[in-house]
Amino acid sequence: MSPSGSESPSASPTTTAEPATALQDALTKSAEAKTASGSMHFTSKGKIDARGTWARQNEPRLLTAKVNQLTLNGKPNPAQPQIIVNGDNALVNGGGLIPNQGNTWWRVPLDNLPGERGKMISDLLTSGRLQDPATIKEIAAAHKDVQNEGEEEVGGQTVTHYSSSLDTQEAAQAAGLPTPTASPGNWPKTLRVDTWVDSSGMVKRQQFRNEEGGQPFNLNLTVKDYDKPVTVQTPPADQVKEVDQQTLKNLLGE
């Protein structure tokens, strides 16, 4: 199977390639789509349960995510935080989660984030490399022990389920990013990844699990649409202000 974006094959990736190649091709081909959008679900050790939507657009570069349903420490929270990444700037609104923010959106210059964590976020979001199919293909090679787990159903479609382990340090190097410091309190060395691929070789769902140390988490991303227009409602100019450095350090835990 070729990630060239040509006409989708009728055969399942299960029958056209061994698991590691099929997974790499699917991740690359999916990254070639001009747009993608879907739903997300993040959980962390019973402390956070967040459900919402996400969307990306390659040209011009745009990423957005919004939480629509939030539970913190087992209690429902009405906050609906949202982030819009547009080029080298992010617009952040806590939606009631950040004290004293109100309806104000913070404009965060991504090329000047403080600390090691800020540097990594900056490199991830401003370089555009994570939306570059060539980079995605390199990162896909960091998936180890890829296994074909058989056919399942996602969103009413029959898909092929692949399991793998993602070496985060190797993935960072493949993307040309600073190698994260792997530690239980900072960043896991390995993520368990499950990927579901449809018969046309496109990713329909991915699940990332950190099972290391004291900060396990689970992130599910489901794709609803590829190559359909992405509409993002940006806030009026009078609701946007620059974030101060101390607030930024607090947000990043620096």
Rank of each mutant, 00 (worst) to 15 (best):
N218Q: 08
N86C: 00
G214S: 14
F217L: 09
V232T: 01
Q157L: 15
S6R: 12
P78C: 02
G253F: 06
Q57V: 02
S127F: 01
R209M: 11
D244H: 12
V230N: 10
T135L: 02
M202V: 00
T190D: 05
L62E: 05
N100I: 01
G176P: 01
S8Y: 07
I48V: 15
L113P: 03
L221D: 04
V154F: 05
T21P: 00
P9S: 13
P81K: 01
N112H: 04
A20G: 03
S122A: 13
T247D: 09
L70D: 10
W54Q: 07
A90S: 05
R61C: 00
I48K: 10
P216E: 12
D111G: 10
D123T: 10
Y226H: 04
N58T: 12
I84Q: 09
E242Q: 15
E242C: 01
P133S: 08
L166C: 08
V197Y: 02
T16C: 12
E153G: 00
K45C: 10
T21E: 15
Q206A: 08
P180E: 03
N68Q: 13
A17M: 12
G201E: 05
P76A: 14
T53Q: 13
K189S: 15
I98R: 10
I83D: 02
L110S: 05
M40Y: 04
D194L: 03
A182L: 02
G38D: 09
N103M: 04
R209D: 15
G185R: 07
D238H: 13
S183W: 00
S164Q: 04
Q233P: 00
T71D: 11
P235Y: 02
V67T: 15
P9V: 04
L248D: 05
W187S: 06
I98M: 11
P114Q: 06
V230A: 08
P3M: 10
L166S: 07
G46R: 06
K34F: 06
L221K: 04
M1F: 09
E151P: 00
S200N: 14
W196N: 11
H143W: 10
R117A: 14
Q82S: 11
K75Q: 14
T179C: 00
K119F: 01
Q157S: 13
G102L: 02
M120N: 04
V146W: 09
G150M: 06
D132I: 10
Y226W: 13
V108D: 05
N218A: 01
T234N: 09
G176A: 08
P235T: 03
T190H: 07
G102R: 04
N89T: 15
A55F: 02
Q82P: 00
K66V: 09
Q24W: 00
L27V: 08
A55M: 08
Q24K: 15
P188E: 07
T158V: 12
V108P: 10
A55L: 10
L219A: 04
R56A: 06
L248R: 03
S200C: 00
A65V: 14
I136W: 03
T28P: 12
